[in-house]
């Protein structure tokens, strides 16, 4: 399994840290209801198929990455920097 880092190019999976579903990008406001925090921290769509998740190029450039990936085939569909994804 390889991820193509936008800065470093195609690299082995071992260089990256998987953080979890991209739900982590939508952090609720500090005073949001407890339900919103529960959903953010714990509840997941957990899809079999194309998903969007967050990886960190730990042993590379140190970028946080948004990865579109298929959880059934392990195919990498796209890898973008979080900053770019949010722009």
């Amino acid at each position: 399994m390889r991820l193509t880092c936008p800065l470093c190019g195609p690299r082995d999976r071992r260089e990256f840290y998987y953080y979890g579903a991209a739900d982590y990008l939508d952090r609720p406001a500090a005073d949001a209801a407890p339900e919103a925090w529960d959903a953010y921290l714990h509840l997941r769509d957990n899809i079999a198929g194309p998903v969007r998740d967050l990886w960190y190029h730990d042993q590379g450039c140190g970028s946080w990455l948004v990865v579109d990936r298929d959880t059934v085939s392990h195919e990498m569909l796209s890898v973008r920097a979080v900053a770019e994804d949010r722009a």
Binding site: A21, L43, R44, D45, A48, T71
Partner: peptide, 15 residues
């Protein structure tokens, strides 16, 4: 996750 979604639920589960 898939079967719970059939009843409109999201679970604290990641496979």
């Amino acid at each position: 996750g898939q079967v719970a979604a059939m009843a409109g639920m999201r679970l604290p589960v990641e496979s």
